[in-house]
Every structure is written in structure tokens, then in C-alpha cells.
Design a binder for these strands. Structure first.
Length: 655
DNA sequence: AAAAATAAATTTTTT
DNA sequence: ATTTATTTTT
């Protein structure tokens, strides 16, 4: 059912002042994009062309036109981005906006699934399994085949996580398991039947433990709408406008959801095919490239003017991307005055690289560039360690993005496991974690307990009443019981975390991490503190599993925004700085030797370079110490493509 | 037989 | 830093 025509926005409400403002703050194309009334709109926008800005203004325009905020769905790539966009929207409107749905596909999916959990035989307090939870479940399922599989086979599936990767690929690309195996893993065809059986067990397991994994948040949402049109229709009626940012990095299921909305309501998408960098997560650029074919009435607007960078940087970016064959033709241009030439420097190794970077950072700070306008970007998180060390040594405050996240650290997961079982007593993965960290309770005993836990209808009670108890490891079990007992009485997240610490985790921390338990302890304190922001356990846990956590944002430097940014390129998407350093442009590192898609690596470099407004530094190392031993690595293919000649120069400035 | 202690190996990118 | 493999202890 297409509801769009019944509910055209009321442009009569638009006042002169607002139109004036739009024409002042936006260029012609952006203005067009903001005010168009087509049902389907797609903005193809190069880096720095103000696409996010245009999207925010469009949302503001819709609200000014009389669309109630709760009838707008704004989908962003990260939840942090959605927070920032909401903030900008508030600034533009001049008042606090309320009721708009904004978040990632995953978080919106979680929100919708909570309301309709019974459709999937779940309770509304289902757990969300993150990647590690998922891995541990698959590991357990595969281990059940110890007798039937040979050692090599077991290793193949356990070590590289092949099985759940295939399943995830099938889920994210909307294909059958069989098709994925035939197409991408032809050597594993003989395991096809077995993998299907395994996947069924995995699905069953998730249902029993009242959980969804990340993929489910999309797939089960999509299927809900398709299988229960009466539910889906309600959302079509509810959302008058769906706005999607970073459309180039959506996968097939997300594309299907967008199509589904596009058939019944207004959809406005923005993206840049040249900035698609999530192919490894099964992002499908075709979603974007073929949207106009699927919806011929779609109005396509190209935003090609770059407002961010000086022409020298834009030119370098254009040169890079011209080596790709699969891009939509697009020529980015900048009308800014001529600025600094990008600097390309060859350094001996990571240490010299760090020294070079720090020297330049000091220069920049001396010139009056604030720390918040400086960032250091890299392909993989381990590449940042030397720079990080130097920053620490010189007491310059910084913040890292990407890489190992706070909630992925072992001690944080340990603490969270207790809260998770309290929230969802069927969360077997969390149980396993907290049981096996007790003294005297190893893998075997742990599995025995788990088996009875699954069968129990009220695990918490059965444990407290002694209906479930292990045959050995009495002391450890005592800890489990008394902790659970006290946790049930705790009222706030803060109290709960302190119960866990008091009931033995503090001692365990000291014992397991003798050299850095204090730092970890502070991390847990932070977590407890962060918990104060949440009213309930469920919102706390959900924020941790879906949001790039803002746990550290209450330190002084961060609040004053007085820090240098260290980030993986993937996490730097959509951001910009006055000065950008790109580390380790080396063969085998960037482009990475693991990366199968060279064009995607090149797009990644393109994204990195276009984050810079004025200063861009490209670094390459002669040697790299990966596992202690020096590895000689040549300069990156991308530097060769830029025509850099390194023969005699330690430091080379482009012509 | 099961758990604990010790040694060895492994690291792209993320919702 | 953290998981996995191996050896030693209970």
C-alpha cells in the first residue's frame, strides 16, 4: 500500500525567514535536495560536500513543514552519528526535538523487535548477542561433533570461525546457505548438509535462550514486515519520511528494508559509492547504484562541490580514486584558495614515524591548531601503538576510536556477564563465562550445570534453592549463589557492579592481572559510573551492545574537546579535521595483505585522505616490527600511484 | 578425570 | 592483550 500521496507535506507552513535561511546556508543543489517533494530522493555526494548537513537540514525542513518528529525515521551508520545529527537538528531548530526515531538499522531493528518479540517466540527482554557471544555459542555447537569429525575438520571450523561466517554471509546477503557455499566456499560443499543442521541448532539455541544476534536484528525485522503485513503496514503509516545516511554501506537486507519503505512512504537516501568501505561486512553498493532503476521516479541529485578541503587535497583524492574502475564518474572540486601541499614522508620504522608525527603535531599546536583539529589515522589498530606511547610520554591527551573496544575487554565482559544473567536468566553464554571463572569449576562441570540451566524454567530460583548445583567446586559455587542472591536485591546498575566486585571479583582481578589490575579496576568503576545514566538494566545493556560507548566522555579533556584523535580509518568515516596523518602506507599493511578487494582498499585510502581540511601527512615505513622481528616492507601501491619517488629522500614533498 | 598453572601463538576493518 | 595448547597438580 502506498500511503505517500495521502500525506503530502504542507508547504504553506513554511515561513519566509526559513526559506531565506536555506538559501543563505546552502548551495543550489543542497537547497534542492532539502526542499524536494518527490517520494524518492537520492543524493550522491562526494566527501566534504555537506551531505550530512543537507540531510539534517532536510529533516529540519520537514519539521518546519509540519511533519511531526515522531513520523520521521532517521537512519545513520553509527548511533554516535545519530546523536550528533540530533544535536545539530536541535541547534538549527532552536528547541529540543522530541520523539524522532533516530539510530542505526540495528538499533531501530532492536526497538521494533522488542515490541513484536512474540512473533519470533521471544520475550521482549531478549538479549542481544555480540560477536564474541556468537562465537562462543558456535564453538560449543561445533564441539558437540567431537566424535564424528576428524581433528583437522574440527580445527578448520573452530579456528577460523568458518561456519558462522558462512551463515552470517548468507543472512546478510539474503542468500541460501547452499548458494553461499557453492559460490564462495566451493571446497566445503561436502559440509553443506552439516552446516544447515548446525545452523538450525544455532537458531533453536537462540530461541531457547531468548536472544537475537546482530544479523537477526536486521533479518528478523525484515521478515517480520514481510510475513506480517498488518504489523508492517502500521510502520508505513507511522513513518511519513525515512531518511538514510551512508547508504553505500548498507547490505542486502538493509536494502530490502529501504525498498520496503520506498514502496509505501517517502524515502530519502544519501551516500557516495566511492566511500563504500564495508564490503567485508557484506555491504552492497548495488543498493545505491540500482535504486533509481527500481524506483524510476527517483530524483537523483549530485553534490560535487567539496567545501571541506583545499584544492591540493581534493586533487590528490581525485588522483587516487581514478585508479578504480568501478566508480560512478564524478569529479570533486574545491573552490577554496590554494593551501598546503600534502606531505609525504618516508621514515625508518614505527618509532621514527611516531617521532615525526609528534614533531609535526607540536608544530601545528604552535601554529594555533587546536588538538581537537588533529587526527592520526591508520588501517589497523595495532599500528597506532608507537604514536600512542609518545603521546602518553609527552602527556598530550588523546582519544582512540576503533580497535578493541571498552566492552570487549575481558574484565568488563566478566562483570557484565553477571548483569546479563540477571536480566535474562536464559543467557547461557553469560552463565558459562561467570561459572567458569570460579575456582574449582572447569569446563566439564560448567557444561553439566548449563545443561540443567537450559531445562529449568526459573534458573535463578533453582540455583538459590539448591535445585541446581555442581558435584564439585563447592567454594566457587558458593560465590555464584551469594552473588546472585545479593544482585537480586540491588536496585541500580551502580550497586550491582559493586556487589559483583565485593563478592569476589575484586580479588579475582588482583589475582588474574597482577601487573595492571588497578587500571582495570578503574575501568570497572567507570562502567559503574556510566551505569548511573541509565534508569534500568535493559537500557544500560542495550546501550552497551549497540552503541559505540561514550563511557570516557566525562573526563575533563574530553568534555572540553581538547584531545587529539587516534582512529582506524573505518571509524573516521564522516568526520573531518584540520590536520590528518595517515600512518604506515606500506605494502602488505595498507593495502592490507589480507584484503581481497584492492578497490575497496583504495576507497579506504580515499576516505582517509579526504578527512583533511588543510594539512595532510602521508607516512610510509621502511621497516616494520610485527612480531618482534623486522619485516622490510615497500611503500604502498597507492603512493606509487601518486607518482612518488623515494630513492634518495627521507622526506619528500610533492611537486 | 578434572582443574590449575604455564608456555606458546595469534591480531583488518565493525553494527 | 587474550586465546589456545601443553604440562603439572589435585
Amino acid at each position: 500500500m502506498n500511503y505517500y500521496n495521502n500525506q503530502q507535506s504542507e508547504n504553506r507552513l513554511i515561513d519566509h525567514e526559513w526559506s531565506q535561511r536555506l538559501s543563505e546556508e546552502l548551495n543550489h543543489q543542497q537547497c534542492c535536495f532539502v526542499t524536494l517533494e518527490h517520494q524518492h530522493i537520492m543524493g550522491i555526494a562526494g566527501p566534504g560536500s555537506g551531505k550530512t548537513r543537507a540531510l539534517v537540514f532536510r529533516a529540519a525542513h520537514l519539521i518546519k513543514s509540519g511533519v511531526p518528529p515522531h513520523r520521521i525515521l532517521l537512519v545513520t551508520f553509527t548511533n554516535k552519528a545519530s546523536e550528533e545529527m540530533k544535536e545539530r537538528l536541535n541547534q538549527i531548530l532552536g528547541y529540543q526535538l522530541d520523539g524522532m526515531w533516530a539510530g542505526t538499522f540495528h538499533s531501530v531493528g532492536a526497538r521494533i523487535l522488542r515490541r513484536h518479540a512474540s512473533f519470533w517466540n521471544r520475550g521482549s527482554s531478549f538479549s542481544i548477542l555480540d560477536d564474541e557471544d556468537r562465537a562462543s555459542l558456535w564453538k560449543e555447537l561445533i564441539n558437540n561433533y567431537k566424535e564424528t569429525l576428524s581433528e583437522e575438520e574440527l580445527n578448520l571450523f573452530l579456528k577460523r570461525r568458518i561456519a558462522d561466517r558462512i551463515v552470517s554471509q548468507a543472512n546478510n546477503s539474503g542468500l541460501d546457505l547452499e548458494e553461499v557455499i557453492k559460490e564462495y566456499y566451493p571446497s566445503l560443499e561436502e559440509y553443506c548438509y552439516w552446516l544447515k543442521e548446525l545452523n538450525q541448532k544455532y537458531e533453536e539455541r537462540k530461541r531457547i535462550m531468548n536472544a537475537f544476534d546482530f544479523d537477526d536484528l536486521l533479518v528478523k525485522w525484515c521478515e517480520l514486515f514481510e510475513k506480517a503485513p498488518e504489523i508492517g503496514d502500521n510502520y508505513l503509516l507511522k513513518f511519513q519520511h525515512v531518511l538514510v545516511d551512508e547508504f553505500q554501506d548498507t547490505n542486502v537486507i538493509q536494502g530490502r528494508l529501504v525498498d520496503w519503505f520506498a514502496r509505501g512512504t517517502s524515502v530519502c537516501l544519501v551516500g557516495d559509492d566511492a566511500q563504500s568501505i564495508y564490503g567485508f561486512r557484506f555491504a552492497e553498493v548495488g543498493n545505491m547504484l540500482r535504486f533509481p532503476e527500481r524506483f524510476p521516479s527517483c530524483k537523483v541529485i549530485k553534490l560535487e562541490q567539496n567545501y571541506r578541503s583545499h584544492p591540493e587535497i581534493v586533487e590528490l583524492a581525485n588522483r587516487i580514486i581514478s585508479y578504480n574502475t568501478q566508480q560512478l564518474p564524478k569529479e570533486l572540486f574545491s573552490r577554496k584558495p590554494s593551501g598546503e601541499e600534502p606531505v609525504i614522508a618516508k621514515v625508518r620504522d614505527g618509532y621514527e614515524e611516531a617521532h615525526f608525527v609528534l614533531e609535526r603535531i607540536n608544530d601545528l599546536l604552535g601554529k594555533g591548531v587546536p588538538p581537537s583539529e588533529i587526527s592520526v589515522l591508520y588501517r589497523s589498530s595495532y599500528l597506532a601503538s608507537e604514536v600512542e606511547f609518545e603521546l602518553l610520554k609527552r602527556k598530550i591527551s588523546y582519544r582512540t576510536y576503533g580497535g578493541l573496544k571498552f566492552v570487549q575487554k575481558a574484565h568488563i565482559r566478566d562483570v557484565l556477564a553477571w548483569l546479563k544473567v540477571l536480566y535474562n536468566p536464559k543467557d547461557v553464554v553469560a552463565w558459562r563465562r561467570l561459572i567458569s571463572m570460579q575456582k574449582g569449576l572447569g569446563p566439564t562441570t560448567c557444561e553439566k550445570i548449563i545443561t540443567s540451566l537450559i531445562k529449568s524454567s526459573d534458573p535463578l530460583n533453582d540455583i538459590l534453592e539448591g535445585n541446581i548445583k555442581p558435584s564439585r567446586g563447592k567454594d566457587g559455587w558458593e560465590v555464584v549463589c551469594s552473588t546472585i542472591n545479593r544482585l537480586k536485591a540491588a536496585e541500580t546498575v551502580y550497586q550491582m557492579i559493586h556487589v559483583v566486585l565485593e563478592e569476589g571479583y575484586h580479588d579475582l582481578l588482583v589475582k588474574n592481572y597482577p601487573d595492571n589490575w588497578e587500571e582495570r579496576f578503574r575501568g570497572i568503576e567507570q562502567l559503574a559510573h556510566y551505569g548511573n545514566r541509565y534508569q534500568s538494566l535493559d537500557s544500560f545493556l542495550e546501550s552497551l551492545s549497540l552503541e559505540e560507548s561514550l563511557i570516557w566522555d566525562n573526563t575533563k579533556e574530553i568534555q572540553e574537546k581538547n584531545f587529539i584523535t587516534l582512529s582506524t580509518i573505518h571509524s573516521a568515516k564522516g568526520k573531518e579535521w584540520e590536520a590528518v596523518f595517515i600512518l604506515a602506507l606500506n605494502h602488505g599493511i595498507f593495502p592490507g595483505k589480507m584484503a581481497s578487494d584492492l578497490e575497496e582498499e583504495r576507497r579506504l585510502f580515499y576516505v582517509a585522505a579526504t578527512r583533511a581540511r588543510r594539512y595532510l601527512f602521508l607516512l610510509t615505513r621502511e621497516k616494520d616490527f610485527r612480531w618482534g622481528a623486522p619485516v622490510v616492507t615497500g611503500p604502498s601501491l597507492f603512493l606509487q600511484e601518486l607518482g612518488v619517488d623515494f630513492d634518495n629522500n627521507i622526506l619528500y614533498e610533492m611537486e
